[in-house]
């Protein structure tokens, strides 16, 4: 019997995943971290990147692009409070590269007085980075 832990993945607008997992890998601010059951209490910031969940009794992993947020673990229960999450099936590389560049350009050209525009562009940039990383991961590890 494999040990399991509970994982809740939520973003500000929806609950995305809730259930048991064998382990998962997230992108923390200092690099990727793998979390297995009975981890000690931890709270850390996430940066834009990939989130991979190993669901029990399945060969495949669920892969999400997370644009940032928090990971909290206590009592064998992990909670990911993400900013924006997208399932990787929906991703399209060309669109992403275009969005990435557009966001970069907007940040570059906007002056600091327009905080609203900068915040929006920064959020879009984080999402694009996360999704590109997720795509990259899939290409390297899943398809071959």
């Amino acid at each position: 019997m494999v040990k399991l832990m509970r994982l809740d993945l939520v973003d500000s607008e929806h609950q995305i995943f809730s259930g048991d997992v064998e382990h998962f890998v997230a992108t923390a601010s200092d690099g990727e971290i793998g979390i297995y059951p009975n981890h000690i209490p931890l709270i850390c910031k996430l940066k834009p990147g990939v989130l991979r969940l190993q669901v029990p009794n399945e060969k495949y992993q669920l892969i999400y692009a997370v644009s940032g947020g928090f990971l909290e673990i206590q009592d064998n229960h992990a909670t990911i409070l993400a900013d924006i999450v997208e399932r990787t099936e929906k991703l399209d590389e060309e669109r992403l590269i275009a969005e990435h560049e557009a966001a970069l350009a907007r940040i570059k050209h906007s002056d600091s007085s327009q905080t609203l525009d900068v915040a929006k562009a920064q959020a879009a940039l984080d999402v694009a980075i996360a999704q590109l990383k997720a795509l990259d991961y899939i290409r390297k590890h899943v398809n071959h």
Partner: peptide, 9 residues
């Protein structure tokens, strides 16, 4: 819950 977390960063 009396325990503390590990914080990162």
């Amino acid at each position: 819950m009396p325990w503390d977390y590990i914080y990162e960063p």
